[in-house]
Design a protein around this nucleic acid. Structure first.
Lengths: 230, 230
DNA sequence: CGAATACTTGATGAGACTCAAGCGCCGTGG
DNA sequence: CCACGGCGCTTGAGTCTCATCAAGTATTCG
């Protein structure tokens, strides 16, 4: 008993002992049409949609491209909370202002919805209220999953989990096109850019993945990746 | 002292560059009275309220004592998501079952509320719906705060932030009574029990805190603690 | 083609983990 | 009353992972 635990601890797993069931993200189709004063806007890579502390007058839905929500620390470091991809809704806050900044990772198009007036609607339109509540709970579950990874994962586990997450979201089983830089990945996983790079190279040497280009990852051995995380 | 300052300078702060405003926790008084089939139950330290994967038939409110919600990894390690203290509501899930286990940290008393029937009520009783929505958003904000700490903090930063969090929640400016073990703290902060112990000793040598007993921490120099985290 | 940017790789060191021992408190039992 | 375990906590020594500092390579774009 103690031995097997010791061995497991060495190359330990980040996954719960119960069967792993990924958090189901809300499908765009499940969303009620809130065509309430939505404004389509385009952002170039790196442009800020809003800053920390800005009035949370609007929330957003991604039409195309990728957006990151993040916070900046005093020393200039950054913690990326989430990447938002096509169909994702983000920037809806409990309080009066945004607790995170939002920035375009790639060229992207979003719809900005006025939050004004929504609050009262939430509790008069069952479907709308229901959807927003589900959205909050789902986001919470995803945040906890992320916490688990940040708190307990090794660099290899973090990278493996990240690749699988992106693959799932892109809906592609065999390769991943990374829309974000190494720095973004590092800030999302609580690592440095060098460690991200090294770990990817390591996984390639192991045969778990291949890197035809820096931004494209072939998932050659999903079982090996899963073994790191499951 | 010089050590802790040096550490702070080296790794910088875990706090956003914008002014730090702690997430306001929902006050018990702000909660609508949901006296819907609440069952008062008592648990001895270490006893499990529910396990990962259990049907989420109920959610809970803490009357006295402390409860932890956590997940277990394959290798036996544990990640504690949160400590729930007097007045806190926990165990309300998006899906059909609990994604985390809940265990009594100390002797504690909780009220279990049937979730059945609540769902429909949520969207017919504005105040109730409003409260649960706020609760979800607040919990989300706290989870993100926790992520930030897990992803970017050094051991000293994690411990300092933890002590201040508990002090705030216990409403005591000058000392903290820790209801939980070193192992609990370690699992909450993503550290080992030895590192927690060593870091506390370090902070005592620095003069930031005093440890009259293992479970009682005097906050001697809050500025120094804040310098680590703010 | 050259400059800028993004990524990779190497050498080194600091911080946290592991293993192992020692201390202190507390309840039990002689 | 004190001896004895048991348990939680502390401390030490050694190791390993990841961050840091510092080149070097690839890719993009004017």
């Amino acid at each position: 008993m103690s031995v097997s635990i010791a061995v497991a601890a060495k190359h330990g797993n980040v996954v719960p002992s119960t069967v792993y069931s990924p958090i189901p993200r809300l499908e765009p189709e499940a969303r009620p049409g809130f065509e309430l004063s939505g404004v389509v806007t385009h952002f170039a890579p790196g442009r800020q949609l809003y800053a920390e502390g800005d009035d949370a007058r609007s929330f957003y839905k991604v039409v195309s491209g990728v957006v990151r929500t993040c916070r900046f620390l005093c020393d200039g470091r950054r913690q990326i909370d989430a990447f938002h991809m096509e169909g994702d809704v983000f920037g809806f806050e409990a309080g009066a202002d945004h607790r995170m900044a939002a920035e375009a990772v790639s060229d992207c198009t979003v719809i900005a919805y006025r939050r004004r007036g929504l609050e009262s609607m939430l509790f008069h339109d069952d479907r709308l209220g229901n959807w927003f509540f589900s959205h909050a709970m789902t986001t919470l579950a995803l945040a906890r999953e992320h916490s688990l990874l940040l708190g307990r994962g090794s660099a290899a586990q973090k990278i493996a989990a990240f690749l699988q997450e992106i693959a799932t979201r892109e809906g592609n089983e065999c390769f991943v096109d990374l829309p974000m830089s190494r720095q973004d990945i590092a800030d999302y996983l609580g690592l440095t850019i060098e460690t991200v790079s090294r770990t990817l190279s390591q996984l390639e040497r192991n045969g778990a993945i291949a890197l035809p280009t820096a931004r494209r990852v072939m998932l050659k051995d999903r079982q090996a990746l899963r073994t790191l995380t499951v």
